[in-house]
Design a binder for these strands. Sequence first.
DNA 1: CGAACCCTTGACAGAAATCAACTAAGGTGG
DNA 2: CCACCTTAGTTGATTTCTGTCAAGGGTTCG
Lengths: 248, 248
Amino acid sequence: MPPDQKREIRHLPLFCDMLLASFEALMQSAETITCASGDRLIEQGEPADYLHVVLEGAIELYARWRDRESTMAVVGPAGTFILAACIRDAPYLMSARALGRARLVRVPASDLRAVFRRDPEFAVCVIQELAGAYRSVVRHAKGLKLRTSRERIASYLLRQSRQAGDLDTYVLSVEKRLLASYLGMTPENLSRALRSLEDHGLKLDGLRVTITDRTELAAIASPDWLIDGPDPEGATGGVGLPPVASTN
Amino acid sequence: MPPDQKREIRHLPLFCDMLLASFEALMQSAETITCASGDRLIEQGEPADYLHVVLEGAIELYARWRDRESTMAVVGPAGTFILAACIRDAPYLMSARALGRARLVRVPASDLRAVFRRDPEFAVCVIQELAGAYRSVVRHAKGLKLRTSRERIASYLLRQSRQAGDLDTYVLSVEKRLLASYLGMTPENLSRALRSLEDHGLKLDGLRVTITDRTELAAIASPDWLIDGPDPEGATGGVGLPPVASTN
DNA sequence: CGAACCCTTGACAGAAATCAACTAAGGTGG
DNA sequence: CCACCTTAGTTGATTTCTGTCAAGGGTTCG
């Protein structure tokens, strides 16, 4: 692996505190891969062979059952996925596919397990990462169980606005089809729900979102620290990727 | 703390591998508490002061938003809760209350954080616990997003049957009201859904469940390893407590 | 240029929440 | 021991919400 790439990985939160020797050991067997849009990286049910770390691009984590599919999260740069499966040496609970061109590192699960047993600093980083991921999913589950779909969308839009730096106008970072799946509804339903919000402080033009009345939207969404998150605690979080500010 | 109680705790999966010195340090400031049915132990939004470990009884973890409430999990003996919040030093995402008489240990979060930094064996146990808890919530979320409420109940009933040792007849370990909330529906809806399953391999008498046609029920539920779990990976799991076999 | 694919809209069917009433069981206090 | 109260559970009627099916417009990509 080229040294500049190693340096890039070394700076990620998961790897920056560990001993240099441990890091080198991990990188020994790690490999960088690039993939095109739609490429499947892992499939649910497979044994956990590799920990994946995203360097560039976005990866969708989704689950399937019978003939239904649902996206569980989108992981962006510096994010990791299926850490838990690797640690437990258990089958993946989710599948993963690239949403566009992406670049990532794969670290063999067995090495991972060996290293965090020997390097306490790394163990602490793993703990932090897992704790963050856990809280992310709990938040997601809370949103699903406590809010209606309209409330979920409204919250999502406000959350994205905040992540964009409290801008009133920004561009969604994912297609609506995926957003619908993430929020637990059909695309048709999302479409209608968005439309219904246009009388309540929202304006839409394709993927460009404009919040015209924050108060009214917030009245519907009731943004909540304990669901929407203060800030993404784990990089393996919601349908993230800081949204793009609208240049128009 | 009495020595026999310490021994009991020492045998729990989270604490059994750590150094004796670390264990003693933790127990130094730990306290055992007992509580009665309905007692609130923690409230969502509060700062994470203590890690809780259940010794006896059952604790309900639930979330609130606006005026709605939903059960997220039930933790039984040997289970822990809000580990992640303690580690992140972040506010609790869920509240907890006792479902009956319960006995548990509280370990100050600051001690916890200090100890797993010094004791690698303990760190590994924490990692295992967190990874299991993460996978539990992911399973829960998958069930919510991919299955209809009828399918969720059917799966739940089969799951409980398996946990009871593949018995055809057993008794639900929680009241239906709570079960409904856990499965993401109203009590009325649960009642109706259960009734509708009585034509499809199920017989009910109060809390006593009898599976009369496993095949037919399974056709509805499509039990799935990746949702229903091979076995409870973390004690902090679904609405657990191995169900009681029906003695009648 | 055509073939996918995303998004939207409408009409409909199905699922679930809500409102209300009623039963049954358990606990309390007289 | 019984009357009373509370609460879980059920059932019915109704409304609201959501998924499904189908069609059409727009865009991208080969």
